[in-house]
Design a binder for these strands. Structure first.
Lengths: 103, 103
DNA sequence: CGCCATTAGCGATATATGTAGAGTTTTAGT
DNA sequence: ACTAAAACTCTACATATATCGCTAATGGCG
């Protein structure tokens, strides 16, 4: 029934991006630009990881009024473990290959 | 050289919308839907009127996190006078006719 | 091996405000 | 009437997050 969680290329890409600086808080918008993921993919993904305890999330007030508040994310200990296990590939290397189809 | 300020159909439309409930605080987004003006027209217009003392503006914190703070606008006494003078046409009537070209 | 339920991805849309640059409109001054 | 110039409008784009609805992938089980 259930598929093994958090194994998609997209998820791995996000984990790799977060693993590059494991203690830093990152914003969804920045991650979307770094990984190339669109919001409709990224935010549900971040929320899943957060629900599963791999990320901690926190709201930050915007610096300028009129801009949206920002949601900051960071890997938890479990998240770091998962990221190391799933994304041993170097952080910056091959930022989400379009397909890598099997022939 | 200079054209008389605040006489455009668009400006009059906004003034009329505000004059419908002169004491109410209105949001830019709502006004844009009510008048059909796009943000690139509406916000500069609101800022001009505000700079000229016809509107008072105020930031409101968003109800839900993740959404932008909202800028609320209301006519000042001067603004009410200007609106009455420029927009005697009924508030709801003819909501910004597309062209009304002169033949 | 293929059925099919569950899960994930992704384009579109919504929420809100604002800026940049190009183009248009309107009137003053001659 | 013509022209110059300010005032104004409008199309894009940027900032950020999030949901909706459809499509695609996965993998357990018969």
């Amino acid at each position: 029934m259930t598929r093994a969680p958090n194994i998609s290329r997209q998820t791995i890409g996000v984990l790799a991006a977060l693993l590059a600086q494991p203690q830093a808080w990152r914003y969804g918008y920045d991650l979307s630009k770094e990984t190339g993921l669109k919001s409709g993919t990224l935010y549900p993904l971040l929320m899943r990881l957060s629900d599963q305890g791999y990320l901690e999330a926190e709201w930050r007030q915007p610096l300028q009024p009129g801009r949206p508040a920002r949601h900051a994310y960071r890997l938890t200990a479990n998240g770091v473990a998962l990221a190391r296990q799933r994304a041993q590939a170097q952080p910056g290397a091959v930022p989400l290959q379009p397909s890598a189809v099997r022939p």
